[in-house]
Computed example of a mutant assay.
Amino acid sequence: MRSSGDFRATTREGVRGKAQSLMIHLRSPDRADIADWDSALVGFVVPKTVGNAVQRNRVRRQLRHLMRERLNNLDPGSALVIRVYPGAAGRPSDELAEDLDSALAKAKRRLR
């Protein structure tokens, strides 16, 4: 996901799932303008409050790697925005994975 319009639409129209270190905004394929895509689109919001550029990029890379494993669990054409909280910079990958799974499960429940 690259355009600010996609991010804005997903955060406004999508359902939320919150965990300790991040929040998920999930928009279903029938509401998304990208319903003809073969897979889900994922975007990341990592604000400067998370840390310096090195810390922000490290968190983004960790989450990108974790999402590659979970993309098959999302419907094709859905849109997902992951908003990271400041406490995420010092967390290990396994804790980020637990938070990601928890937030995704909450968002999927609300989507139904």
Rank of each mutant, 00 (worst) to 15 (best):
N52E: 15
A40I: 06
L66Y: 03
A9N: 12
R2I: 02
E69V: 04
P76K: 08
R68S: 14
V59S: 00
K18Y: 04
D38K: 06
S102F: 11
L104H: 05
D38V: 01
L100R: 03
R16P: 00
L104R: 04
R27N: 13
A35N: 13
L100A: 07
A19Y: 00
T11N: 03
D30E: 14
Y85G: 06
N57A: 13
P29W: 05
V59Y: 00
R12V: 11
T10Q: 01
R112Q: 15
L96H: 04
D38P: 10
L63I: 08
R31P: 02
R70D: 12
V50C: 02
L41Q: 14
K48F: 05
G43L: 05
L66M: 07
R2W: 02
K18N: 13
S93Q: 14
T49S: 15
V42A: 05
P92E: 15
N52P: 13
L66C: 07
R56H: 11
H65R: 08
A19V: 05
S3R: 10
P86S: 09
N57T: 11
G5Q: 07
A103N: 09
N57V: 08
K106Q: 15
A89W: 06
D6E: 11
R60G: 07
K48D: 12
E69C: 07
R110W: 10
N73K: 12
V50Q: 01
R8K: 13
P76G: 08
P29G: 07
E95D: 14
R16E: 07
V45W: 00
G43C: 03
S78M: 07
A19H: 00
A35R: 14
G5I: 00
L26H: 04
G87T: 08
R31G: 11
S21L: 10
R56W: 07
L71C: 10
E95V: 10
A103K: 05
S4W: 06
E13D: 14
D6F: 02
K106Y: 10
T11E: 04
L111V: 06
A40D: 01
V46N: 01
S78Y: 03
D94A: 09
I34P: 02
R110G: 14
E98D: 12
V54M: 05
V15E: 04
R109H: 14
F44Q: 07
D94S: 11
N73F: 11
V54L: 08
M67P: 05
V50R: 00
D99Y: 01
Q62I: 06
H25T: 04
G14K: 01
D94E: 14
V45R: 00
R16K: 13
L41K: 12
A53F: 10
P76Q: 10
G87K: 12
S78W: 02
L100Y: 05
L111I: 08
R8V: 08
T10I: 06
S21M: 06
R91P: 04
P76F: 04
V81I: 15
G17R: 01
K108H: 15
M23N: 11
L74E: 09
R58M: 12
I82C: 00
R12A: 15
E95H: 09
S39I: 10
A53K: 09
E69N: 10
N72D: 14
